[in-house]
Amino acid sequence: MTHDASAYGLWPLVILNSAIFIIFAFSFGKPQSRRDWRSFGAFSAFIVALFTEMYGIPLTIYLLSGWLQTRYPGVDLTSHDAGHLWSTIFGFQGNPHFNVLHILSNLFILVGFILLSAAWKVLHAAQQQHGLASTGPYAYVRHPQYVAFMAILFGFLLQWPTILTLTMFPLLILMYVRLAHAEEREARDAFGARYEAYAAATPAWLPSPIGHRPAGSKSGGVARR
């Protein structure tokens, strides 16, 4: 096994990459309320944990080194490419940055940020008018911003899985679902029958198939703040 000393311990890259994605999420999501900051903080913790293992300390590689060396004796565990564990486990050959999982990862992350930005624009406009968000992503799902965060996090897991982020992911999903339920209770109190009609016509997380969307689904979505 050869040793690539430059593969890890690159703390400037940890800081730089964490800052880039956290700033992107902040600029697209525009957290304002305590609930927003809570969801944004959890997302930021996931990002820092991810890049700490990607460029700083490969804790998952260390913990799994015995199993990995036994199962994949030809893999250089000290190399950066070995950190792409799905590529190692599924036996992908060549540069892991160009395999199908990495490409899917980039698509999930890109779509997530686009959805986050589009949802914020609609929500902000609704808030300015003290009304309900009903156009754009809110015409298809009731919680597009949380869907966006989930897509981004899932994309990163496809790219670079770690024990910590794999553990954090279901906990973050649970947190986003609970926050969504809290928002819906507030929306029902604030908008009554109007929100009930919207909720009955618009799925919470996944858009309805084409041709199966109930009528009246543009009656209005929740303005959370």
Rank of each mutant, 00 (worst) to 15 (best):
M1H: 13
A7H: 09
Y8G: 01
L10A: 13
L13S: 14
L13A: 10
I23D: 00
R34F: 07
W37M: 07
W37P: 10
S39A: 12
F40M: 11
F43I: 06
I47S: 08
I47N: 05
V48A: 13
L50P: 09
L50A: 08
L50W: 11
T52W: 14
M54Q: 15
Y55Q: 09
G56P: 12
L59A: 13
Y62C: 02
L63I: 13
L63D: 02
W67L: 14
G74K: 03
L77P: 06
L77Y: 03
S79G: 09
A82E: 06
G83H: 02
G83A: 06
H84L: 04
I89C: 01
F90D: 01
F92D: 01
Q93L: 02
F98L: 11
F98T: 08
F98K: 03
N99D: 12
N99S: 03
V100W: 06
H102M: 13
L107D: 02
F108L: 14
F108V: 08
G112L: 08
S117W: 15
S117H: 15
V122P: 03
H124F: 11
A125W: 03
G131T: 07
S134V: 00
A139K: 02
R142M: 04
P144S: 00
Q145F: 00
Y146F: 12
A148Q: 00
F149W: 03
M150N: 02
I152W: 02
L158F: 13
L158W: 09
Q159W: 11
T162F: 10
L164C: 07
T165M: 05
L166M: 15
T167E: 04
T167K: 04
I173H: 04
Y176G: 02
Y176Q: 09
R178D: 11
A180Y: 06
H181F: 09
E186W: 03
D189A: 15
G192W: 11
G192D: 10
A193N: 11
R194W: 05
Y195Q: 10
Y195I: 10
Y195E: 07
E196M: 12
A199I: 10
A199H: 14
A199N: 11
A201M: 09
W205L: 13
W205Y: 14
S208F: 07
P209C: 09
K218F: 08
G220I: 03
G220C: 04
V222C: 14
A223F: 08
R224A: 04
R225C: 01
